[in-house]
Computed example of a mutant assay.
Amino acid sequence: MTTIADSKSNAIAVASSEARPAPPTRANSIISVLRSAAGLLLAIAIVWIVFSILTDGVFVSDRNLTNLMRQTAMTAMVAIGMLVVVVQGEIDLSVGSFLSLCVTVVAMIEVSGVVGVWGTIAAALGMGILVGLWNGTWVARFGLPSFVATLGGLMLFRGLALALSGGRTITGVSDDIRFFGEAFVTGPALWAFIAVAAIISLWPLRKLGEDSQRRRTLVRAGLGFASVVLLGWATLSYRGLPMPVAITLATAAVISWMLANTVWGRHVYAVGGNRDAARSAGIPITMHLMISFVLIGVLTSVATLMLVGRLGSAPPESGLFLELNAIAAVVIGGASLYGGTGTVSGVLLGALLMQSLANGLSLLNVPTAYQNITSGIVLMLAVYIDVLSKRGGKLFSRP
Results as ranks from 00 to 15, higher is better:
residue 90 E to V: 02
residue 193 F to D: 02
residue 383 V to T: 12
residue 244 P to R: 13
residue 311 L to C: 01
residue 335 A to E: 01
residue 155 M to I: 12
residue 77 M to T: 15
residue 336 S to F: 08
residue 331 V to C: 14
residue 101 L to M: 12
residue 60 V to C: 09
residue 125 L to V: 11
residue 24 P to S: 14
residue 11 A to R: 09
residue 227 S to E: 05
residue 317 E to M: 05
residue 73 A to W: 06
residue 335 A to P: 07
residue 206 R to Q: 12
residue 10 N to E: 13
residue 4 I to P: 09
residue 222 G to D: 08
residue 8 K to L: 01
residue 85 V to D: 11
residue 334 G to E: 02
residue 39 G to W: 10
residue 360 G to K: 12
residue 336 S to C: 10
residue 30 I to A: 12
residue 5 A to Q: 04
residue 367 P to N: 12
residue 97 S to N: 12
residue 246 A to S: 09
residue 169 T to Q: 09
residue 377 I to A: 12
residue 365 N to L: 15
residue 73 A to N: 04
residue 41 L to F: 13
residue 185 V to Q: 03
residue 126 G to P: 06
residue 288 H to S: 09
residue 361 L to A: 13
residue 307 L to M: 11
residue 385 I to F: 04
residue 169 T to N: 06
residue 135 N to A: 11
residue 52 S to I: 01
residue 153 G to R: 08
residue 252 A to E: 14
residue 359 N to T: 14
residue 399 P to K: 13
residue 69 M to N: 02
residue 236 L to F: 04
residue 59 F to E: 09
residue 145 P to M: 10
residue 36 S to F: 07
residue 150 T to G: 10
residue 24 P to L: 14
residue 38 A to F: 13
residue 131 V to N: 01
residue 326 A to E: 04
residue 103 V to Q: 01
residue 160 L to D: 00
residue 249 L to A: 03
residue 251 T to N: 02
residue 54 L to I: 03
residue 114 V to I: 13
residue 353 L to K: 03
residue 97 S to E: 13
residue 292 S to I: 03
residue 369 A to S: 14
residue 338 Y to M: 14
residue 68 L to V: 13
residue 226 A to R: 09
residue 311 L to A: 07
residue 12 I to W: 00
residue 243 M to C: 11
residue 397 S to I: 10
residue 93 L to K: 06
residue 308 V to G: 00
residue 10 N to P: 00
residue 81 G to A: 15
residue 198 A to L: 14
residue 374 T to H: 00
residue 125 L to K: 08
residue 199 I to E: 05
residue 265 G to K: 14
